[in-house]
Simulated assay, not measured.
Amino acid sequence: MDLHTVTEVVSPARAGQWRPGDAWLAGGTALFGEPRPGVVRLLDLAAAGWPPITVRDDGLEIAATCTVAELSRFGGAQRFTAFHGLTTGCCQAFLASFKIWNVATVGGNLCAALPAGPMIALTAALDGQCLLLGPDGERRVPVTAFVTGDGRTVLRDGELLRSVTLPAGSLTGPTAYRQGSLFTHGRSAALLAGRRTPAGGFVLTVTAATVRPYQLRFPAMPSEQDLVDGIGDLIPDDAWTDDVHGLPAWRRHLTVRFAREIRAELAA
Rank of each mutant, 00 (worst) to 15 (best):
M1D: 11
D2Q: 13
H4W: 07
T5D: 13
A15G: 11
R19N: 02
D22L: 01
L25W: 14
A26I: 06
L31K: 13
F32A: 10
G33L: 07
P37E: 09
G38E: 14
G38D: 14
G38V: 03
G38C: 04
R41F: 06
L42M: 11
L43P: 14
T54A: 13
V55G: 03
G59E: 04
G59H: 06
L60F: 08
A63P: 12
T65R: 10
C66V: 07
T67Y: 07
A69T: 05
E70R: 12
L71C: 07
L71Q: 09
T81C: 04
F83P: 10
F83T: 05
T87M: 14
T87D: 01
C90P: 11
C91W: 04
Q92W: 12
F94W: 11
L95F: 09
A96E: 12
S97N: 12
S97P: 00
S97I: 00
I100T: 10
N102D: 11
A112C: 08
A113C: 06
L122R: 04
G128S: 03
Q129V: 10
L131P: 00
L133Q: 13
G137K: 07
R139V: 02
V143W: 09
A145F: 05
F146S: 09
F146L: 10
T148W: 08
G149F: 03
G149Y: 04
D150T: 10
G151V: 06
R152H: 15
L155M: 14
G158T: 08
E159I: 08
S163P: 05
S170N: 05
G173H: 05
T175N: 05
Q179G: 10
S181G: 15
S181K: 06
F183T: 12
F183G: 02
T184Y: 08
G186S: 05
R187A: 04
A189N: 07
L192D: 05
G194N: 00
R195P: 00
G200R: 05
G201H: 01
A208F: 06
T210H: 05
R212Q: 13
R212P: 01
A220R: 14
S223V: 00
Q225P: 01
V228H: 12
D233S: 12
I235V: 15
P236F: 02
D237L: 14
D237T: 13
D238E: 15
W240A: 11
V244P: 01
H245W: 15
G246H: 11
G246Y: 12
A249C: 10
R251W: 12
R251N: 14
T255K: 11
A259V: 05
R260V: 09
L266H: 05
L266Q: 05
A267V: 00
A268F: 03
